[in-house]
Amino acid sequence: MNIFRLVGDMSHLLAIIILLMKMWKSRSVAGISGKSQILFAIVFTTRYLDLFTSFVSIYNTSMKVFFIGTSYVTVYFIYQHFKPTYDSNHDTFRVEFLIVPVGGLAFLVNHEFSLLEILWTFSIYLESVAILPQLFMVSKTGEAESITSHYLFALGSYRALYLLNWIYRYYFEGFFDLIAVVAGCVQTILYCDFFYLYITKVLKGKKISLPA
């Protein structure tokens, strides 16, 4: 463990807590893409199957349980509990255009042709594009609540910090995973536009309005 990965995981944890608090306090899921949240639930489910087969640490296991659990609670909030506030008319990204290519790529490009490894690879590739429905929704509605912007900033920061973690691990531990690094770069690049708007607007008290 290193400071970059720890802060990255905390940023990821914070993002999830911000989202849940927004939903619970405002009793609304307005502006949140249910499709992205479903993709995140798939990401965690396919990535953490080793939860039962290999034990790394209490931290690792508890974080995995938390991420899987909260991802399903979030999907439940959107599609059941707060369904009347779900804005399905603006959440129209065709996720099959993500899942099919990512599934095919995971099948072709992976470290080992085994079920667990292909599912892990699928999860890594899927996570890199899972935020697209959410960013698409923000661009369609033309704006995002500031709490949603904070959620996206924390979520985008987590993988950017993981990039620093991989640089650190490469030089100090000789650890290198090309698949995770490439997907992490794609994932972080997708947030660049948002990061720019967040830093230039939200931090000055303005609202975000992605070009519609």
């Binding site: 995981d9 790394v56 690792n60 470290h111 973690n165 000789g174 995973d177 698949i179 995770a180």
Partner: peptide, 10 residues
């Protein structure tokens, strides 16, 4: 520099 067999990252 193969990646660690056991996935220790989240």
């Amino acid at each position: 520099k193969k990646e660690a067999r056991v996935k220790d990252e989240l």
